[in-house]
Design a protein around this nucleic acid. Structure first.
Lengths: 329, 329
DNA sequence: GTGAAAGCGCTAACAG
DNA sequence: CTGTTAGCGCTTTCAC
């Protein structure tokens, strides 16, 4: 590992000042074509590579980088959201680095990131907001899927209440009478009803409200949905409409339905949550309360943008979830 | 946008030197608890956030960032590979930024990236290697899915020849006689046989070699696979084994098979390429020539690592593709 | 068109 | 335990 080739080396070799080299490298004006070409040739010959740290330090407009943190990019919900968010980030000239919180204590990861990016956004598990704020060390932090209450923490949450009310309403119009919910069990934590479950229970009749199956680990998996569907139909055979915590779980339910010879949507209507594009390729294609493809990512980017501009008050939004009608309901 | 709070401000406020502040901020030794706490408190009060550019510039060990470039992270193959690569990158202490080449001319994108990351890896479309090398401006570049021939360009390609030979062999053992291939049409380019097609044709008998359907746009989509399967079965009704360019296309083929009442794998065996984990949730689950989950990402990371260490000779590898037996074949 | 000087904000190495 | 002295490599004035 020898000394790095710097702008100084090029300047010396070319017999010009460092400033001239900078002008040549960055395609700036006020330099003759001849010297530019000569410098470019020399820098190539010497294998010169500008230091992004030095250039960003000196430059007035620095490149922004945001970190997107999720459980795992193997979950299509997160990867599709990453794709959406990436578009929004690129449009704003930001770089986006993806970070999975699988192998490192969350707070530690957060404070590491705080020194390496301009803002952090994602699904964080830690419930102690003070701890989160401290770990972020002043880096703008945007919490997803929950509502922040601590000063300085931003968030974009979901408005499940109206969404479920509307969904149940529409389903009733199509003939649904008895609903059932496939709820997800957070990994290794004490079970606590999800905001989806709460919204569900508020939206349906008392009998349906009782028809809830908390699917076993692994959470958020197709398998969990498959097992859950079996249990739900066994325990509540009159169910004619199943709402799943997520599209992935709905896909599992669909599999179970096929296996049991239950026609979807003929005998049982099935609805997921997320709006995965993947839901379009199952047969029947999955109806879903859509998060993806609804401007959710744009909304997140807006919040980040404000946070980056040092907006003082914390920005808190709640996204609405339109129904994405496909075939399964 | 007021002046940024710097280490200098903290030092002045605390009545210590900048160096002491550095020590406090980075949890370095040789500082008393008392002063550390005082400095931390002050820095929080003043809203101090270290500049990652300054710190990386001054530091001896700088944080590495690699860029992973693909068409679109909406394609599950790319997002699953991104997840694998991210694991490999994190394990090495690198950050990984994802970049989609959807909206920007590739060479331009590349030279922009060259100034912002330490290495670029991905599926690049540009065939002119000189142009790629120039645009990369000396940043290590690792080409995926093709073999580089230009000096300084690294690559990790696939060894389709043996893979297809082995696959066909194994399928024959299970009773396959007449094969068919669902080939993908590159977008908007003049059609040229893919390396997969070439390997396929070399592996099968002459009659099967002729049973190739080049699926219409959109390439690499479930829909393309669905249409392609129809055409293949219409034109070559004796086909008993279908190999698809990718798992996504195989999923489309599966859909068409369901629709046509063709039993898979009873009447027709179906094999994809990629090894998507998603292939496990279709019914029947998809058999595939696996790229994912085979150490491919690790291999890529190794190549990057060597390139980063300034290994002179360009590193070129070819990954092998084991068969991932599931239900569809 | 080109160069000199003055930083950008931080850390390494050493001295005290 | 703390401070001083030098940079890290580049860009930004502002002269010439």
């Amino acid at each position: 590992m020898q000394r790095r080739v710097t702008i100084e080396d090029i300047a010396r070799e070319a017999g010009v000042s460092r400033q001239t080299v900078t002008r040549a490298m960055n395609g700036m004006p006020r330099i003759s074509e001849a010297t530019r070409d000569r410098i470019l040739e020399i820098s190539e010959r010497l294998g010169y590579r500008p230091s992004r740290f030095a250039s960003n330090l000196a430059r007035t407009s620095k490149t922004k980088t945001i970190a997107f943190v999720v459980d795992s990019f193997r979950n299509p919900y997160y990867s599709e959201l990453a794709a959406d968010l990436l578009d929004a980030a690129s449009a704003r000239g930001w770089q986006m680095t993806i970070v999975s919180r699988e192998d490192e204590p969350e707070l530690q990861l957060l404070s590491r990131l705080a020194n390496q990016v301009d803002a952090v956004v994602g699904y964080l598990g830690e419930t102690d907001e003070k701890a989160l704020a401290t770990a972020a060390r002043g880096a703008p932090l945007v919490l997803l899927g929950r509502t922040a209450t601590t000063d300085g923490l931003h968030s974009v949450d979901f408005d499940f209440g109206p969404a479920f009310a509307n969904l149940v309403d529409e389903l009733r119009k199509r003939g649904s009478k008895r609903f059932g919910l496939l709820e997800s069990q957070p990994l290794g934590a004490v079970y606590e009803p999800s905001t989806r479950r709460i919204a569900y229970e508020a939206a349906v009749d008392p009998v349906s409200a009782a028809a809830v199956v908390v699917c076993e680990a692994p959470p958020q998996s197709v398998d969990a949905g498959e097992l859950g569907f079996d249990e739900l139909m066994d325990r509540f055979p009159e169910t004619d409409t199943v709402i799943a915590f997520s599209d992935l779980m709905a896909m599992g339910a669909l599999r179970a339905a096929h296996r049991r010879g239950v026609d979807v949507p003929g005998q049982v209507r099935l609805v997921g949550v997320d709006g995965l594009s993947l839901g379009a390729v199952t047969s029947p294609a999955l109806t879903s309360l859509a998060i993806l493809g609804t401007g959710f990512a744009e909304q997140i980017a807006d919040v980040i943008e404000q946070a980056l501009d040092g907006g003082d008050g914390a920005e808190r939004r709640r996204a609405s979830l339109p129904i994405l009608w496909r075939e399964s309901a």
